[in-house]
Design a protein around this nucleic acid. Structure first.
Lengths: 188, 188
DNA sequence: CCTCAATGTATCCAGTGGATACATAGCCAC
DNA sequence: GTGGCTATGTATCCACTGGATACATTGAGG
C-alpha cells in the first residue's frame, strides 16, 4: 500500500513503478521481470510482493500511470486530427508501456482503482475533443469508439508489420486519411 | 523441416502444430509451453527443437495456420458487413490463436514463408469483398485498412474490457454500426 | 552388412513468478 | 524506557520455463 512513508527503503512501491517505467522504456522488447527490477532497486525480489500482491498487480499500477500520462498528453490536442495523431504517437513512442496498458486482463481494469480511473480520464478527454457537442450520448460514445478503434487497431497492425508503411510519420498521415480526419479538409 | 516422412514418430512437426492449436483453443489464457506440448505428444520436450529452431518459430507456424483458416472463413462472406462480422467472430471465438497470429514480431512475418502467405491471402480476400471495384489501388487499400483497423482495434478494446459491451453479439452489432456498415440481417 | 545423417532422449543450465519462514525496524501502549 | 505488534525486507526453496550439449536410436542407401 503506497502512502506509507519510508521504513527501510523509502516508498518502495512508488520507486518500483518509476523504475519499471524506465526499464520498459529502455527496452520494450525485453520481457519485464520482477527480479531484474528488484536488482535495479537494490532489494530482494521478494520485497516487491509486500507492495504488490502479484506481478500482474504491479503491471496494473504501471498501466495506470501510463493512462494518466496519456490523458495528460491528449488534453493538449485541440481537435480530432490532433487527438488521433497524439494518441498514435504516444503509442509508437512508448511501445512497451502501451502494451502493458492495453494488454491487461478484462477483470483487472475494473479491479484496480487507479487503472479504471486512468482509462476513464482518457475517455473523458476523448469525449471532449472527438464527440459532437449536441448529439445524444450513444452517438457521442460511438464517435469516440470509432476513432479509438481505428487508432488502436492501426497501431497494432503497424507494429505487427501488417501494413507496408515505412516510417511512423507516414503511418500517422495515413491513419488520419483512413479515419477521415485528413489534415487539410477535415470533418467532424 | 516438414515434408519428411515418419522416422520415429511420424510427422512430428505437423502433429505439434495440430496439438498446439488444440491446446491454445482449450485454454487461451494459459501461456503456451513447449513442455506441456511435448508431454501431450508423448515426446521429450527437446524433440520439438529438431523441427522448430525456437519456440517463436513454432508459434509462427501456428500463426500461419491461423491465417489460412481465417482466410477460408472470410471467403464465405458475401459483403462488407458479413466480412467484418466474420472477422470479429473468428477472433472472439479463437482468442488465443488470434493473439498468436497478431502478436508475431514484425520481422517474423516476412521471414516465415507460410506466415507471409497466410497474411497475404487474408488481404486478398479482403480486397475482393471490401474494396470498390473501380477505384484506384490507393483507395482500395485504404478501404480495406479502414475496416481492418476498426476490426482489430475493436477486438483489442473489447477483450481488454475498455468497452462496456456485455455480450459478443452486442459487440458485433455495435462495431458494424461504428464502422458505418448497416446492421440489417447479418449473422455468421 | 555398415555407415551416416536425421530424429529423439537424458540431463543440465540460468532464469522466472511465487511461497514459506525468518529477521529487522519503527510505532504505540503501558 | 520497554515490550510487543505490525509493516517491511531477506533468505531460501519450489515448480516451471526456454534453451543447450551430449548421446542413443533408427532407418535408408551404399
Amino acid at each position: 500500500m503506497p502512502g506509507r512513508a519510508a521504513y527501510h527503503h523509502g516508498d518502495l512501491a512508488a520507486e518500483a513503478v518509476d523504475e519499471a517505467l524506465r526499464m520498459i522504456a529502455a527496452d520494450p522488447s525485453a520481457s519485464f521481470s520482477l527480479r531484474a527490477l528488484a536488482e535495479r532497486l537494490g532489494v530482494a525480489h521478494r520485497a516487491l510482493y509486500n507492495h504488490f500482491a502479484t506481478r500482474e498487480a504491479l503491471l496494473a499500477s504501471i498501466a495506470a500511470r501510463g493512462f494518466e500520462s496519456l490523458a495528460e498528453t491528449l488534453r493538449a490536442a485541440p481537435d480530432a486530427p490532433a487527438f488521433l495523431a497524439a494518441y498514435v504517437r504516444f503509442a509508437l513512442a512508448n511501445p512497451g508501456l502501451y502494451d502493458v496498458m492495453t494488454q491487461r486482463d478484462h477483470a483487472q481494469i475494473n479491479a484496480h482503482l487507479g487503472l479504471r480511473a486512468g482509462v476513464d480520464r482518457v475517455i473523458a478527454v476523448a469525449l471532449g475533443v472527438l464527440a459532437s457537442p449536441g448529439a445524444d450520448d450513444d452517438t457521442r460514445r460511438r464517435e469516440v469508439m470509432r476513432v479509438w478503434m481505428v487508432a488502436h487497431g492501426g497501431i497494432g497492425l503497424q507494429r505487427a508489420g501488417m501494413l507496408r508503411l515505412r516510417s511512423d510519420d507516414q503511418f500517422v498521415e495515413e491513419i488520419l486519411h483512413i479515419a477521415g480526419l485528413a489534415t487539410k479538409g477535415e470533418k467532424a
